[in-house]
Write a protein that binds this DNA or RNA. Structure first.
Lengths: 307, 307
DNA sequence: TACATTGTTGCCAAAATAGCAACAATTGTT
DNA sequence: AACAATTGTTGCTATTTTGGCAACAATGTA
């Protein structure tokens, strides 16, 4: 027999009456009429089947039982104040554990560099970065915010677009020396191509916009992985032609380990990046702060990646 | 900001939902419809301004705040179970402190001799006998039961008549030798009379029923006190003629210290003795047991005092 | 893919509640 | 000592709240 729904409001009212020492005072604090207080107190006693207060028009006296119940009410009052305090803290203060889910490569390049700033701004937030290139169920795994790449399936989740990934087509000098450099998208069909793949999405249909308009190529995969950084390594090692987020390529391109291909063509539409969270209503302050933060900091980095 | 009336039922419901892990289960336990549970839970979250449970049609997951609130709810649940247990104990078990108010002389003669029996029958009751010959306010002084002599003023109290005190008129042989023995009630007017008096009642109007019918005498007081035993001592010492409870006179009469007067007259109406307690409704078990006890044991002693 | 279960929402009836007014009881004051 | 003022209680009515039914949406399973 756990918390009983019926007796609880009565207990609250009883507590208030005892604190004031009069029904009238309690009624004033509760914004009620005296009659209501009287009735509810009487009903509470009826529910318990015992008198709690001996009442006269002038004085109230606690019964022996009333004293015991009053003590318990004190305990409950303390717990309730805790609830209030905790909730208030949770709503107003940016504090607590914040679980963020993100694909590992995206995090390494775009997100992790920002975290020191976030941590400095909100030092009381304990970030728990969950890097995994798989589908995560936000509700089940208690993830506060997920950063997801690609168009989203219909869902009850709220998604805010952070920007679009800028793609680039690259290969290593060694690979190009051996197999030649493609001049048009159609040429790619004959090459070994590297692309990202996780359980959800297989990116083997590449779309270009060039002099002849839009062209699509379904490429053969020499290697498909769910780790973008490993893909870059693979490309550097000459395993094939890679289509990947431009931000990952700044160092290999600068050092000449990788070369840019098809400069006259642009990748049609970069995949959108979203910040996703379970519900818009009553978003905890820490989550709201994080979303605001990445909207300001993350999005510009996507738009103008430093090469 | 103490216990809040509004948030408490929601907290109970939330606790129930968490315990079951589903709204449907909670609804079944509470005997409610699913919709009601859903609505109330939503309202509770709205009141707090924060989400407590991430809900899917299949799974429920506690928010970080939800976990904290759930912990507090556990505390409250424990306190509430205490309230239930205490109340049950209080109602059903004859146990605890029982404060009884009684005039000292009445207690010494009639009540105290019974207490060992009561104590043996209800060993878990701690009797607190408050002996005082003055008016006591039951509600203010947290007296459970009072035993009062004489007709009661109108009151919200419940009174159960235990019987009537049997009066007797006595004096010491020494006093009678000096002042002579009264032959009729009217003779008493010339004597020094001893009678009981407390703040409430002055018993100086004595009523007799004799051969000539009812006779009343307003006596002069040689000594009036609020201690019946002391009055007996005074009478033994020859201070005057005493009208007092017959039960107090068994030893002095047997030993000849006091002599009975006006044997042809009877005291019209003995003063009634009442057991008085604040309210009939929800009388605690201990008080009910005591009242029953003195009704069975006390009343016969009044009716047939042992001389 | 079809089905079953679960949470949510709109609507309406039912129940609980608050407020008003009158009453009873008690205390302090004139 | 009587009056006035305050307090707790009760009956009645209007308002608010709540509960249940039905339909819907979403999700996991056979």
């Amino acid at each position: 027999m756990p918390l009983s729904l019926d007796t609880l409001p009565g207990l609250v009212l009883f507590s208030c009456v005892v604190r004031h020492g009069s029904l009238t005072g309690a009624a004033q604090e509760l914004g009620l009429n005296r009659s209501s207080v009287s009735k509810q107190l009487a009903r509470f006693e009826a529910q318990l089947g015992a008198k709690l207060l001996q009442r006269t028009t002038r004085k109230l006296a606690l019964t022996e039982l009333g004293e015991r119940v009053w003590q318990e009410a004190q305990t409950i009052a303390a717990a309730l104040e805790n609830v209030d305090a905790i909730t208030e803290d949770y709503r107003q203060n940016v504090r607590g554990r914040l679980k963020v889910s993100c694909s590992s490569s995206l995090a390494r390049v775009h997100l992790v560099p920002l975290l020191p700033i976030f941590n400095q701004r909100y030092p009381e937030v304990d970030l728990l970065l969950q890097l995994e290139d798989r589908f995560v169920d936000l509700t089940t795994e208690q993830v506060d915010i997920a950063i997801r790449v690609g168009h989203l399936p219909d869902s009850s989740l709220v998604a805010r677009k952070l920007g679009e990934l800028q793609w680039q087509l690259v290969a290593s000098p060694g690979y190009l020396a051996k197999h030649g450099a493609p001049q048009t998208p159609a040429d790619l069909a004959g090459h070994a191509c590297l692309f990202y793949q996780n359980g959800l999405r297989v990116m083997n249909l590449w779309t270009f916009t060039g002099p002849k308009g839009e062209e699509q190529v379904r490429v053969k995969g020499a290697l498909a992985m769910n780790d973008a950084c490993a893909l870059v390594d693979a490309a550097i090692n000459g395993l094939g032609i890679l289509l990947i987020d431009r931000a990952l390529l700044s160092l290999p391109l600068a050092s000449g380990q990788l070369l840019s291909l098809l400069p006259d063509y642009q990748l049609a539409a970069g995949l959108p990046v979203y910040a996703v969270y379970p519900a818009r209503e009553w978003l905890p302050a820490k989550a709201a702060a994080f979303v605001e933060f990445i909207l300001q900091e993350f999005a510009p980095r996507l738009a103008t990646p430093r090469l």
